[in-house]
Simulated assay, not measured.
Amino acid sequence: MTAARTAWGEARGEGADGMQAILNVIGNRVKVPCWWGADIAGVCRAPEQFSCWDETDPNRERLLSVTLSDPQFREAVTLAHRLTAGLLVDLTGGADHYYDWRGPRPFWAEPRFFTTRIGHHDFYRTGPYSI
């Protein structure tokens, strides 16, 4: 459920494609274990990676208490099951990072790393590896 909560927490307002894209980033990171973690839970809860898990995030309580009665969370759970089964199509072109383009641009968001825009998120592949 950690992946589903992360997708819901980061992109519930972006629809199914937005949540799928967040799950793609999680999956792409898991494929290449690094400082960001080696498994789904580790990747999702790595410090300062997915803001929905930050202690100071104003929506964190909602993240921890959301149930299957929320239609967007049900969609996130379905997508997360597809991720763990290896059946989730990568919409991001192998992205391992993203940010909301309406906010400040992070230092790592160089144009040469850009892969796609989905909703309010720009996706980037910063690693020199192949996924």
Rank of each mutant, 00 (worst) to 15 (best):
R117M: 02
R29Y: 00
T6Y: 05
Q20R: 15
R105H: 01
V30C: 08
P106S: 06
R105Y: 00
V25L: 02
Q49H: 14
R5L: 06
G94M: 11
C44I: 06
A11N: 08
Y129R: 14
W35G: 12
I40M: 01
D70H: 03
R74F: 00
G15M: 01
L83M: 09
N24T: 03
E14P: 04
E55A: 15
M19W: 05
F73M: 06
A16N: 03
P47T: 13
F123P: 03
A16V: 09
E110Q: 15
S130L: 15
I131R: 14
G13H: 12
P104G: 14
E14H: 03
D54C: 09
V32S: 11
H81Y: 07
V30I: 10
R125P: 04
P33K: 07
E75H: 03
A16I: 06
D100W: 09
F73C: 05
L87H: 13
P128C: 12
W36K: 14
L83P: 03
R82P: 02
G42Y: 02
H97M: 13
G94K: 12
G119N: 06
H81L: 12
A41K: 13
I22Y: 01
N28Y: 00
R82W: 04
A38I: 05
H120T: 11
L88C: 08
P111C: 06
D54H: 14
C44N: 06
E61R: 12
D17C: 05
A16Q: 12
T115Y: 02
L63Y: 07
I131L: 13
R82E: 15
